[in-house]
Amino acid sequence: MQAINASPRTGVGSREDFERLFREEYPRVVGIANRVLADRQAAEDVAQEVFVDFNRLHRADAPYAGPWLHAAAAHRALNAIRSRLRRAKREAAYPLPAPADPAEEVERAEERRLVRAALARMPGRGATVLALRYSGLSYSEVASALGVGVNQVGTLLRRAEAQLRREVERGTSR
């Protein structure tokens, strides 16, 4: 049994390179996932899975390391909320910071639920571009993560912002 699992790793690179990459990118990767999930602990889980996968498959000094990690964090977090939405019972369980006012707490919980549901429904790259840009990535970094020209980012972002508003309103009117 041991022998079957003993295949070499493709992501071999120096440990120092990986640790440097991790320190540079981990907070940002968590930030991207948290922007989608609104759940810091779940965002850390997603970020760690992303780094584990990257470490297995790629060299830490690869020039595409940052863009790969950013895109993977957004995609994985979006997949997570899409899966969550299939389970109605869990849908309301997004943890939130506890405000002092219970009425405000209910209102904020509902708004976050609607936004997560709207992100999950958005087709194509819309939700991804929102997650990346609103996590603080520059237009150039968003372009690298999405594999598009930097001049396309503004167009994608504007459409996604309009679409997010429409989807949230659609969810509210249901």
Binding site: V30, V115, L130
Partner: peptide, 14 residues
Amino acid sequence: AGQLLAVGPAEVDT
């Protein structure tokens, strides 16, 4: 969109 996507800080122990 910025208001809708606002989340709490994600401080991490790297």
